[in-house]
């Protein structure tokens, strides 16, 4: 059955009958907790991805690797990151594969892509909250491509660490019309810090924005943040 399904993948395209691939779906579910069966399935998916397939079939494999892929699948997926037609679905898998090799592949792709593809890679790095990417993302905060700079800003906000907040605050000094986007990302960092009980760090960020020179919506957010910090037990006991 599984052999037949992988045969069907070779000619699979938009409009093909999805039920032909059902054995692959079943194998993905049934192999949970069965390492050998899972590895066999992954190996078959990787081998298929390296072959000549339609974009639809490649997309399908990436969807499955998002569920079952390991470090073994990363090289085949990483090769697709630079292709306009495949980059997104490659990230669809890489964003979900827990192995550090997947994060590394996304970081390694940064200098190889530009424009929308770079924005996509950056967004996946942000979604993974990859702290090892903070230096690279920081270097993109003033990128000549405004969409890349914005993506790096949002990704650093998603990472939400003291280091990513510091990089954003440095960029804020020369932010121009990107100011509110950067502030939004810094505020997201403060929320992450607060959630991880780093109250002093969060409070410091909020205090910096609780200033008459800031737009009203920012002051509102800063005030709310400070109130949230003040309601934390560690602060109350001071």
């Amino acid at each position: 059955m599984l052999d037949t399904a992988f045969d069907a993948l070779k000619t699979f395209d938009w409009g093909s009958d999805l039920t032909a691939l059902a054995p692959i779906e079943d194998a993905a579910t049934a192999s949970h907790g069965k390492p050998e069966a899972r590895q066999d399935l992954e190996n078959r998916l990787i081998a298929a991805l390296k072959g000549t397939l339609t974009r639809d079939a490649q997309d399908y494999i990436c969807r499955k690797l998002a569920n079952v892929g390991t470090a073994a699948a990363v090289p085949a997926l990483a090769a697709l990151l630079v292709n306009k037609g495949n980059s997104h679905m490659s990230r669809f898998a890489l964003e979900q594969i827990p192995a550090p090799e997947a994060a590394g592949a996304l970081r390694d792709a940064l200098p190889k892509v530009s424009g929308d593809l770079k924005v996509g890679v950056i967004s996946s790095i942000g979604a993974r909250r990859d702290t090892a990417a903070i230096p690279a993302l920081s270097g993109l905060l003033n990128d000549a491509d405004a969409s890349v700079a914005r993506a790096a800003t949002l990704a650093l906000g998603a990472i939400g660490s003291v280091e990513s907040a510091a990089a954003l605050q440095t960029a804020l000094r020369a932010a121009g019309d990107r100011r509110l986007t950067i502030i939004d990302a810094v505020l997201k960092c403060a929320e992450s810090l607060l959630a991880s009980n780093q109250i002093a760090n969060a409070s410091s960020i909020y205090k910096a924005f609780n200033d008459e020179s800031q737009p009203r919506i920012v002051r509102l957010a800063a005030t709310r943040g400070l109130l949230a910090c003040a309601s934390q037990p560690a602060v109350r006991s001071i």
Binding site: A66, E95, P98, S123, A127
Partner: peptide, 18 residues
């Protein structure tokens, strides 16, 4: 359940980002 955790989100097509 690491496998289930892979299903809590999905990569967005460029240039869209949360």
């Amino acid at each position: 359940d690491a496998e289930a955790n892979r299903m809590t989100d999905r990569a967005r097509r460029e240039p869209w980002q949360l």
